[in-house]
């Protein structure tokens, strides 16, 4: 459905079907179109003439939703509502597209203004105060999410430490490329990645770049499609991966804060105490996880889907090898070659 007017009508109908007093959809425009999912901005005009700024996240009808067990984009809305209900800042869901809607599969949510580009979050002067409290706030947000119940019926994938590690190794092998540093990391992880004590609802991609920030702090946590159920440290460690620190590698939490602040916030909001050695082990895991993603892009590039962006991302796998060696052998004298 390429026609904007048709999409606007379908949106208005979906809003009405959800019980909203919608008179019209105004100012509909495409914000971003990924390979499968699109974001549209629009104003929902009520029968009283008041306009509510919203964002539509959708994919075209008939396309399979690739995620961690969620059956559809519309089902992701249930997860966002759940996060909202436990105090995680999210764009509140306004309405879902009903099954069979000509608008496709998706949902509409509040249009929130803020910065999402990781490098700019770390640089903009007007965000300085926000940055100072963000590591702690991230800890609080994750503790609330990890304490949530009621996700059991969403059909999310459940995966523990051992299975995560086996899956990581399998994805690495599938790239068909010999990487001694990844082999070293895998061997280390087999000895050092602890079994989880508990499994909780995870965001799955919680990092600088997936949060919307304003001068008042984190306004919304975005990109929920990798949500799944697993060890809580998974989310905490992903936030600390060096690649997400952009120009500020010396600040381990997203380039804006310290692990101490992150964990203090986590525990103050009810998160179970985090063992530092377990966090370190998961940082090794998550660093390699990002590396395997980059390496996977290299395979795709060589096999079929060539683009200049993919070529450059593929050559970022080496940054994770560097970060892995810094994590695994920080004191080795070979570092003195610089």
């Amino acid at each position: 459905m390429g026609d904007t007017e048709e999409l606007a009508n379908a949106l208005r109908d979906a809003a009405r079907e959800a019980g909203l007093a919608a008179a019209a959809v105004d100012g509909l425009r495409l914000l971003s179109g990924g390979a499968s999912k699109e974001m549209w901005a629009f104003d929902l005009v009520g029968e009283d003439g008041a306009a509510t700024p919203l964002v539509l996240r959708r994919q075209h009808a008939g396309r399979r939703f690739s995620s961690q067990g969620l059956p559809s984009v519309a089902a992701e809305a249930a997860l966002v509502r759940l996060a909202d209900s436990v105090g995680v800042p999210v764009p509140s869901v306004a309405f879902e597209l009903p099954p069979g809607s000509p608008a496709g599969d998706g949902y509409a949510m509040a249009r929130i203004v803020g910065e999402t580009v990781g490098g700019r979050v770390l640089k903009l002067p007007e965000l300085a105060e926000a940055r100072a409290g963000m590591a702690r706030h991230c800890g609080e947000i994750l503790a609330r999410l990890h304490g949530a119940s009621g996700y059991e019926d969403l059909g999310l994938r459940r995966i523990g430490a051992r299975e995560e590690l086996a899956a990581l190794e399998e994805r690495h092998r599938a790239t068909g490329h010999d990487r001694p540093v990844f082999e070293l990391a895998l061997r280390w992880l087999k000895d050092n990645l602890p079994e989880e004590r508990t499994r909780v609802l995870l965001h799955g991609d919680f990092r600088n770049g997936n949060v919307m920030v304003g001068p008042d702090g984190i306004r919304a946590v975005l990109d929920w499609e990798l949500a799944h159920v697993g060890p809580p440290v998974y989310d905490l460690a992903w936030l600390c991966v060096t690649s997400w620190r952009f120009q500020r590698p010396e600040l381990p939490v997203g380039g804006f804060g310290t692990r101490e602040d992150l964990l203090a916030g986590y525990e103050s909001a009810g998160g179970a105490p985090v063992d530092r050695a377990e966090l370190h082990a998961w940082e090794v895991f998550q660093t390699m996880n990002w590396g395997v993603m980059c390496a996977g892009v290299a395979e795709a590039f060589v096999e079929s889907s060539r683009s200049i962006e993919a070529g450059v991302i593929a050559r970022r796998a080496s940054e994770t090898e560097f970060d892995l060696m810094r994590l695994l052998a920080p004191d080795h004298e070979a570092w003195n070659v610089r």
Partner: peptide, 30 residues
């Protein structure tokens, strides 16, 4: 072994991404 892996990794970064912030920070003595 560890020495080989470190030296090889440093060489890869020289080619792939000499401006990678963590790499630059290490180079500059952090």
């Amino acid at each position: 072994l560890v020495e080989h892996l470190i030296l090889t990794t440093v060489a890869k970064l020289e080619i792939d991404q000499p401006a990678y912030p963590a790499f630059k920070a290490w180079r500059e003595g952090a």
